[in-house]
Design a protein around this nucleic acid. Structure first.
Length: 590
DNA sequence: GCCGTTTTCGGCCCGACTGTTTTCAGTCG
């Protein structure tokens, strides 16, 4: 996949252009970088099939960017970017990750102090050199140090949703190799943890040498740390390390269990094994020298006196006790979510039209979507006011009528959407919660929507009590159905706002408002622990992608994974309901 | 540099907040 590379290069283009005060282009590159990051298909494949024209057909990619992508495919770099880098030899992307640092400050820091990277930045801040620069100051310097600390805490872990496609591609490569019977990525990826540190590939094969060579020669490999028959270790071009372990079939299950973890879960299992007079390792479950189990995970858990459990649960937080008592929940199955209740269109900040998002959702096999464009106080998105929502409502009515008549999509859409007469587009909105907790749309207009959702998008830096009070007030609005991305965090970018999540859960229960599990990869908000708290309290969850483009709709599985990590079962998830039941549920509140 | 509810050329990125200032530039959503 070259998509991540292109996405990074375009992000850098955007920052450089912004540094030079070029109007509009930075936003264009930024937008394209996001689009490409979410793209399912490899740009290289798209180019090889349809050339420049096909690249141009990718939304937000025009003639000029298509040429730059072609250039990258052909010579491995973008000349214009190289020129910019010569002008400012600065690691702009890494500096930009520091909260509060933007292109202009990065430029100023380069001009005054020759700061090129995070290392220079930290040294300068600690030496007090930043505070004395005109236009900066004491507080800016402190903010930079805090930003650096936040970055350090998040470390080099990658976001699950962005690594999963690569992980699957790697698995697929090995499954196709002759002699291979198993090829599975274990570790935090298999547990679907929100961030991933490295990739652990387990393979059983009759041709170990071939598997080993294939691994170290993968196109993503930039360095080989260790190469052996049983284990090899490499560094990938995305900055992650990857390991392969080549195993005999009789211990595959034991290795899978061992390398799936997590660490604490394994420690507890080994304690139980010891109590029973066994020894558990990556090679199997043993009594003395005799191997009692090892071929599958199931037999290992069984011999330890408990049920097998899904990898998502293995965090040593009650799953072992439940497995012993045979009381593990039947987790929300993958594919159970039937509709997406947060979808943006180009009526505000989405990339695609109402029609295109509808078409994409039908093709993706969903049964319904809710259109949730932003509302008026979010000026940057061109948020809709009451009149705008009414106009959009009419556009939605029109689409629903076409769908019901089997006439939606026309010639081009083909068979996939034509037969879906029961598909439904719901009228909704992502209503902005104002500083005082009121909503920025009149109740009389909310009443006309099929489902009402709200979220915080402004005034993030409130004190904990104030923010909690603000959100609880919003939850008390009689028309509110769902609270979107309840903690506001962006993984590796921005911490959650200060909020008492337990109090919010209590208020959500009391006011019959569902909490969203926004599964856009950077958000994953609610996170797993919060899902579990909510579910325990009897609060309903809604799993949404927050799609801003058709390609985002496929993120649903990430939300299902996080819901599973939070012990959610099907009845906890509102949008696992078929449409009539879902609508009845929302109507009950009116 | 991209895109088309009206426009293949002319709009897009607006408003609040912060930290620096004393009237405003930079950042963020």
């Amino acid at each position: 996949m070259i998509n991540q590379d292109i996405s990074h290069l375009f992000k850098q283009m955007a920052i450089f252009l912004e540094m030079m005060d070029v109007p509009f282009k930075p936003a264009a590159y930024e937008k394209a970088a996001g689009e490409i990051e979410a793209l399912d298909r490899d740009l290289r494949d798209i180019y090889q099939e349809g050339g420049l024209k096909a690249l141009n057909a990718v939304p937000t990619v025009g003639e000029s960017m298509a040429e730059k992508i072609e250039e990258f495919i052909k010579i491995g770099q973008i000349k214009e970017l190289e020129r910019l880098k010569k002008k400012f030899p600065v690691e702009v992307e890494e500096l930009y990750r520091v909260e509060g640092l933007g292109p202009k400050t990065i430029k100023l820091l380069w001009q005054k102090l020759r700061i090129k990277n995070l290392h220079d930045l930290e040294a300068a801040a600690k030496a007090g050199k930043i505070a004395v620069i005109p236009h900066l100051g004491e507080k800016t310097e402190q903010n930079i140090l805090r930003g650096l600390e936040f970055l350090r805490q998040t470390g080099n872990r990658k976001i699950l949703g962005y690594i999963l496609p690569l992980a699957r591609q790697i698995e697929e490569r090995f499954r196709k190799l002759p002699g291979v019977s198993h090829a599975v990525i274990a570790g935090s990826l298999r547990r679907r943890q929100e961030t991933i540190g490295d990739i652990d590939l387990l393979v059983t094969t009759t041709k170990p040498k071939m598997a080993q060579e294939t691994f170290v020669k993968m196109p993503e490999v930039i360095a080989v740390y260790a190469e052996g028959v049983g284990r090899s270790s490499v560094r990938l071009n995305n900055g992650m390390d990857a390991d392969i372990r080549i195993l005999p079939p009789e211990s595959f299950g034991a290795a899978l269990q061992y390398f799936t973890g997590d660490k604490q879960h394994n420690i507890e299992l080994r304690k139980i094994a010891i109590q029973k007079g066994f020894k558990l390792s990556e090679y199997g479950l043993f009594r003395g020298r005799r191997r009692l189990a090892g071929k599958t995970e199931e037999e290992i858990y069984k011999k330890l006196g408990m049920d097998w459990m899904p990898p998502e649960l293995r965090t040593a937080s009650g799953e072992i006790a439940a497995a012993i008592k045979h009381t593990l929940p039947t987790l929300l199955p993958y594919g159970a979510v039937r509709g997406d209740l947060q979808v943006q269109t180009n009526w505000t900040d989405g990339a695609a039209s109402l029609e295109k998002m509808t078409e994409a959702a039908m093709t993706a096999g969903l049964d319904y979507i809710a259109i949730t464009d932003h509302t008026k106080t979010l000026a940057m998105t061109g948020g809709l006011d009451e009149k705008g929502l009414a106009r959009q409502g009419k556009a939605i009515d029109k689409i629903n009528a076409q769908i019901a008549a089997g006439k939606f999509g026309g010639e081009k859409s083909g068979a996939k959407s034509a037969g879906r007469k029961n598909f439904r587009v719901l009228k909704s909105a992502e209503v902005n919660i104002l500083k005082d907790g009121s909503l920025d749309i009149q109740n009389s207009a909310l009443k006309k929507l099929d489902v009402v959702s709200a979220a915080v998008h402004t005034n993030f830096k409130m004190r904990r009590e104030e923010m909690t009070k603000r959100i609880i007030k919003a939850l008390q609005n009689p028309y509110l159905n769902i609270l979107f991305h309840p903690t506001g965090r962006l993984i590796n970018q921005r911490p959650p706002y200060e909020i008492d999540i337990d109090a919010v859960i209590v208020a959500a229960k009391k006011n019959n408002v569902a909490l969203e599990l926004d599964c856009f990869p950077d958000r994953t908000d609610l996170k797993d622990e919060h899902v579990r708290k909510a579910v325990d309290a009897g609060v309903k969850i809604v799993i949404d992608t927050d799609a801003h483009s058709p390609d985002h709709l496929r993120y649903i599985e990430l939300g299902e994974a996080t819901a599973r990590r939070g012990w959610a079962v099907e009845k906890d998830v509102l949008n696992a309901l078929p449409l009539p039941k879902l609508l009845a549920y929302f109507r009950k509140k009116r």
